[in-house]
């Protein structure tokens, strides 16, 4: 299904929001790998939702705003975006750092949010100071990252097949990810003390084979949000929406309808 790109300028920053589908609003926030709204699972969701999928500045070849310092800058950009789009009772779905973003938005303002879906999300540090809760993606080989993040590595994108232009986008995504999550590493130490503010129904969907952000991490995260539930998706790693799109869409549909 074709996406309709929407170019906005908010806070003086150029922002692309990809839209598709009809139905209740679903704000889709992608992870460190870049946009996901073109994938088959999103086509399926577009049959039931109107999807709004912003491209985080710095990703997919877009400019990283010079004044941005960390994820909070993105959080406030998207609070403005939700106002601009006049979202009403939107489902907010975020994968990986997109899930972290979703949680940060929700602790600040729930007025436009009806439900929250966090998919293999980062954002907290459940372990002690000596525990490496999430492998250091910036200091890990591509082969090892593939092993950690995929249940079926055969489904992982193969960079050796990429053109230089595609690799440049991947390189830019990595730079953007580092701006949003280098230190503190992929989390906000304050977030856990704010999560109690999330009073909308919240679902954690988690690829059971994710060795980067493990189901135990997801469980700890889930326990910090009152009433949140977690569903593990078998035979899927860090991207269950890619490895198990049918099961994934089924859970999203069921949760949104409940």
């Amino acid at each position: 299904m074709a996406e309709t790109p929407m170019k906005l300028t908010l806070q003086g920053i150029d922002l692309e929001v990809r839209r598709k589908g009809r139905g209740p609003a679903l704000l889709m926030l992608h992870g460190g790998g870049g946009p996901i709204s073109h994938l088959p699972f999103a086509d399926r969701l577009a049959e039931q939702f109107e999807i709004f999928a912003p491209v985080h500045p710095g990703f997919d070849g877009s400019r990283l705003p010079e004044r941005f310092d960390d994820l909070e800058d993105l959080v406030y950009l998207y609070l403005d975006l939700m106002d601009h789009l006049q979202l009403d009772r939107a489902v907010v779905l975020g994968t990986s750092i997109g899930g972290w973003l979703a949680a940060e938005l929700a602790v600040r303002n729930l007025q436009r949010i009806s439900k929250l879906i966090l998919v293999n999300a980062v954002g907290i540090k459940p372990g002690g100071r000596d525990e490496r809760d999430i492998a250091d993606v910036f200091a890990t080989s591509h082969a090892e990252l593939t092993r950690l993040t995929w249940h079926n590595p055969a489904l992982a994108p193969d960079p050796s097949q990429f053109t230089d232009a595609q690799l440049k986008i991947v390189a830019g995504n990595r730079v953007a990810l580092s701006l949003y999550g280098w230190d503190p590493y992929l989390h906000n130490p304050r977030l856990r003390y704010r999560l109690h503010r999330i009073t909308v129904p919240t679902l954690f969907l988690w690829g059971a084979s994710d060795k980067l952000v493990t189901p135990a991490y997801g469980k700890a995260y889930c326990n910090m949000i009152p009433g949140a539930k977690m569903i593990a998706i078998d035979q899927a790693g860090h991207s269950p929406h890619v490895e198990q799109p049918d099961v994934f869409v089924k859970h999203v549909t069921h949760f949104a309808a409940a």
């Binding site: 910036f138 200091a139 890990t140 080989s141 591509h142 960079p159 230089d164 690799l167 440049k168 991947v170 390189a171 830019g172 990595r174 730079v175 990810l177 580092s178 701006l179 280098w182």
Partner: peptide, 22 residues
């Protein structure tokens, strides 16, 4: 040395980073 440590995000211009990735 390893490619990922030689190519931390933000060090090299993107075109150079691509060379490391390849």
């Amino acid at each position: 040395v390893t490619p990922h440590h030689s190519n931390p995000p933000g060090y090299h211009p993107l075109d150079v980073a691509v060379q490391f990735m390849k």
